[in-house]
Simulated assay, not measured.
Amino acid sequence: MAEDLAIRKGNKSEQYRSIVPQIKSLLSGETDLVANLGNICAALKEQFGWFWVGFYLVKNDELVLSAFQGPVACTRIQKGKGVCGQAWEQEQTLIVENVNQFDGHIACSSKSQSEIVVPILRNGKFIGVLDVDSEHLAHFDEVDQLHLEQLLSLVDFSSL
Rank of each mutant, 00 (worst) to 15 (best):
A2E: 04
A2I: 05
I7T: 03
R8D: 09
R8Q: 15
K9L: 12
G10S: 07
G10R: 12
N11D: 15
S13W: 11
Q15P: 15
S18E: 01
S18G: 00
I19Y: 00
V20P: 09
I23S: 01
L26K: 07
L27G: 02
E30K: 11
V34I: 12
N36E: 06
L37H: 02
G38Q: 01
N39W: 08
I40P: 04
I40L: 07
I40D: 01
A42I: 03
L44Q: 04
K45I: 02
E46V: 01
Q47D: 00
Q47H: 05
G49Q: 11
W50I: 07
F55E: 03
V58I: 09
K59V: 04
K59N: 09
N60M: 13
L65Q: 07
G70V: 06
P71C: 05
A73W: 01
A73V: 00
R76K: 14
Q78A: 15
C84K: 12
G85L: 06
G85A: 03
G85Y: 01
Q90W: 02
Q92I: 01
Q92N: 06
T93D: 07
L94C: 08
I95A: 02
N98T: 00
V99Y: 00
D103L: 11
D103F: 04
H105Y: 14
H105F: 07
H105V: 00
A107R: 12
K111P: 10
K111H: 14
K111C: 13
S112P: 09
S112K: 09
S114K: 01
I120L: 09
N123V: 03
K125C: 15
F126R: 14
V129M: 09
L130N: 04
D131I: 03
V132I: 14
H136N: 15
L137D: 12
D141E: 10
D141K: 11
D141S: 10
D144T: 02
Q145L: 09
Q145E: 12
E149D: 05
Q150H: 08
L152F: 04
V155S: 01
D156S: 05
